[in-house]
Amino acid sequence: MGLERLLRLCLAVWVLTASTIGMGAEWTRPIRVGMTPAFLHDQHAMLAEWKLYLQNELKRPVVFVQRDSYQETMDLIHKGKLDFAWLCDYPYIALGRLVKILAVASYRQQPIYHSYLIVPSSDTHTRSILDLKGKVFAYAAPQSNTGYVVPRYQLRKAGVDANTFFRKTFFTWSHSKAIRAVASGLAQGAAIDSYVWDSLQKVDPKLVAKTRIVWTSEPFGFPPIVADHAVSKADFQAFQNALFRMKDDPAGRALLDKLNLDGFVEGTPSLYKGVTDMMRELGDL
C-alpha cells in the first residue's frame, strides 16, 4: 500500500514538473508578427481577439508588434526581430529575398485590391488626379503602394513632376488617417487602399461619406503576409495553416468578418509584378 502511494506521488510530481518545463520553454519563443497600416491595424479589440485565436491554434504565444510606419517594420525585419509581418506591396518588394510570401488575404473572393483617388464629397468637379493641381494632397506613407506609388505613377504617366504638381503634400502614415484628412478638408485629395476605404465604410460610414471616389486603379496583389527568410519550415507551415484554416472555423470566420476578408490563400510573387514595374519606372528599385 505505502509503496504504491509513493509511486503515485512520484509520478504526479514528474508529470507536473515536465509540463511546467515544457510550457516555460514554449513561452520563451513566442511568434512575433509585425502589424502595419496595410490593413485596419488600429482596431485593437479585434487584434487582441485575433492574437488569442492564433495562440489557441498554434498552442504558442503570439506577439503582435505594431508599428505605424512600414519603414519601422522593415527595419525590424532587417534586424531579424520578426518572424512574420503583414506588409504592403512596396515593403515586400523592397525587402526582396529577406522575406517570402506566407499568405495573401482574399478580399471579395480575390487576392487583389485597388488604389482609390478620393476627394472631399463637397468637391464635385474633380475627375482625375490632374484636376488637383496646386492643391493640398495627402499621401498615406512613402512605402505605400496604393497611397504613394500609384498617384505618383499616374502623374509620371501624364508627364507631370509629382514634386511640384501639388502645392503641398503630407503623409498621414495610414490609409484611414488619409481618409480622415480628406473628410475633414485638411487635404483636397488622397490616394488610398480600396480595402481600407470599403472596410471603413462599415465601421465609420459617416466619415467615409464625407469623401468621394474619383478614380479607381487597376488591381494589385493584396498586401501579403510574409515570413522572414530565417523562419523554420515547421513554423512557416504551422502559421500558414492557422491562417488558411480560419475560414473553416466559426471563431476564425467571425474574425475574418471583422477584418472584412474572406480568408487567407496562397500567394505568388507574380501577383506583385504590376507594383514592381511601377516602382522601377519611378526609380524606387
Binding site: 493640398v136 495627402a138 503630407f170 503623409f171
Partner: peptide, 12 residues
C-alpha cells in the same frame, strides 16, 4: 518636420 497631419491631429 513640416508634418501637417501631426499638427492637425494635435489641434483636433
Amino acid at each position: 518636420h513640416d508634418d501637417i497631419w501631426r499638427a492637425y491631429e494635435t489641434v483636433s
